[in-house]
Nucleic acid binder design. Structure first.
Lengths: 345, 345
DNA sequence: CGAGAGTCCGTGAGCGTTCACGTGAACGTT
DNA sequence: AACGTTCACGTGAACGCTCACGGACTCTCG
């Protein structure tokens, strides 16, 4: 085999000398049959002599022919592609949501193209610009406001993850933070805690903080901003740093609620490093229910979310949008967390 | 607005009464312009009067027109789609690899459609059947042998993850288990360990076990199958169960090497539950370098892999295949793990 | 006032498939 | 011998879009 054999085999010469991918026509010519016969061979349809079929396939192999998915899509309708935009694949929460999306999509025969926005609004827009051209619907977490999304959406249906109904005019699925915090606070207050802090996430006052404040008020606890510290990132390190600050401003807290499990784990680590026993001196409550929480010490008490279900629900929401039906609203689209009591609180 | 307005607005009636999605032609007709002008408007090209552009966009909005990505793809070449097949999104290892793939793909302007095979060969084949039609190249973990892959591939370039050069004729990128085990074993033996067991993964004797045996021999340690237990799944639970059996058959071990970090963590838990202190009574060594390992107690000593880099490398490998270049072989495509000593060993 | 330039818009062709037919040959049936 | 059937294959059209043209119209300026 000569060195340039591969070049010769895998493409076809143009009049201008450049090379292009082989088309069905090239295969037909080489095999001495019509396009239709090539189509029959490669698609394993009937009505073809086994011998010619073999000859066609050989020609296809030689030219490294692969049907254009675009040309196919033109004529065969029904291939659905959903876009999925995830803010941070390193946070174990999101792969699990993604798994739910993939599972539901597979069942429906859809495919999903994935995008990691890495919590960057510019990358969010890039994702939308691409996916609005390449996907039939988009599911995802977005920081950008509705108007920006709409501008980069070009009319493609969108299902937002965890953006409250008051906060968006798009269809959405999410988590009922209030229902979660109610359980969580009841647990902490029931254990005698009155001085409860919160380690909030980076995106400013969201539903979780709001629910936290609401429940604190309902339980007659002292509430003001001094009980809340912001974490620069939604990670263990972010939680560690946030907890440092919270303990500085509020050394008297006896319990802390973490925006998510990662932050809560960070809080535990800082607390112990600073000489507080968990849960005896300081109770820690997480939010997410990562399996990681069972592995740390002490095991993390948390408000568990069925993340796979959230993903499946998002796909169902997309299906409704596509069918022209009303999207799910309220409790059907808003999952309630479940308190899982382990040892950290 | 009447109840059927939405129907009317979002689709176009066919002669036979059914409805289809609006095309560029429908928009042109409604706006009283030509297809080309519609194209100019929706693609934000120049050479169009702002007023007519507005009129066209309004018509497009009314008909809920979105350009067919297939028709676009037909004429505008260059959109590359890669398929990524992951065995288990719940294992934190794989999202990190995926993140690397997504990162590199984004840089090249490619998109990636993801598939979770959930360690099921039938699902692997489904993935290939779909992706071979919809993707320009495929990256992934596969259990199925080469012939099966080839049969469902239809000529699409494939880059295998972690399948050794001797084990496949496809291009691949992976991890140099031997280089890792050399460091790991040196560490354990250097600490005085002579009776070292292994918790192997579910897929039978792979490179990691082979490297383990090799190094054990090189260090003059006793080696036979009694020092190895199989884990039914690559998870903490799998590691726990495997460790139970290993401690039953080999109560005299002083160190154990886990197939991956999850299994190693499981091993630690079982060891401690059975009254052995880690690392004093039993040293535990992991493989993967999940960030989880820093969080458990004691912190896991492990052979760390740059998983993102592995993902990026896979994309680079695909790029080579597509360019007709020789794929990377040897050290360039086979990442060496790095021993990260923490406290478990 | 006519030539040239600029602005806006339309026309035909072509992208690579598949689908619904149409055709011709070989074979059997009455 | 005339006719239907089956098999293997080919032909034209259609899918929805963009690109390279070209045409009409307005504006400017010598």
């Amino acid at each position: 085999m000569r060195a340039d054999d591969q070049q010769w085999e895998t493409s076809v010469e143009r009049p201008d000398g450049t090379r292009r991918r082989a088309t069905i026509h090239d295969v037909a010519k080489l095999a001495g049959v019509s396009r239709q016969t090539v189509s029959r061979a490669v698609n394993d349809k009937g009505e073809i002599d086994p011998a010619t079929k073999e000859r066609v396939l050989e020609a296809a192999r030689l030219l490294d022919y692969r049907p254009s998915r675009f040309a196919r899509g033109m004529v065969q309708k029904g291939a659905v592609t959903a876009g999925l935009v995830i803010p941070d694949l390193m946070n174990p929460f999101f792969p699990e949501v993604a798994a739910g999306v993939l599972e539901a999509a597979e069942q429906r025969g859809w495919q999903v193209v994935m995008w990691d926005s890495r919590i960057d609004e510019a990358r969010e827009r890039d994702a939308l610009d691409v996916l609005s051209h390449q996907a039939d619907a988009i599911i995802g977490y977005f920081k950008s406001p509705d108007e920006v999304l709409a501008r980069h959406l070009g009319g493609v249906p969108l299902v937002l993850l965890e953006r409250g109904p008051q906060q968006t005019r798009f269809a959405a699925v999410g988590i009922d933070a209030a229902a979660g915090l109610e359980q969580g606070m009841a647990h902490l207050v029931g254990a005698g805690h009155r001085r409860i802090g919160m380690l909030d996430g980076v995106h400013g006052p969201g539903p979780r903080r709001q629910a936290f404040l609401e429940e604190a008020r309902r339980n007659g606890l002292p509430v003001d901003d001094s009980w809340i510290a912001l974490c620069a990132e939604h990670s263990v390190a972010g939680g560690e740093a946030g907890m440092e600050r919270l303990l500085d401003t509020r050394p008297d807290i006896t319990a802390v609620f973490g925006f998510n499990d990662l932050i809560a784990v960070g809080a535990m680590r800082t607390a112990r490093r600073r000489g507080r026993r968990v849960p005896d001196d300081l109770a820690v409550l997480g939010f997410d229910g990562l399996s990681l929480g069972e592995l740390v010490e002490p095991a993390l008490t948390t408000l568990h979310i069925d993340k796979r279900r959230l993903g499946r629900l998002a796909v169902e929401q997309v299906a409704r949008l596509r069918a022209g039906e009303e999207p799910l609203r309220g409790a059907d689209a808003w999952l309630a967390p479940e308190l899982v009591v382990r040892t950290s609180a």
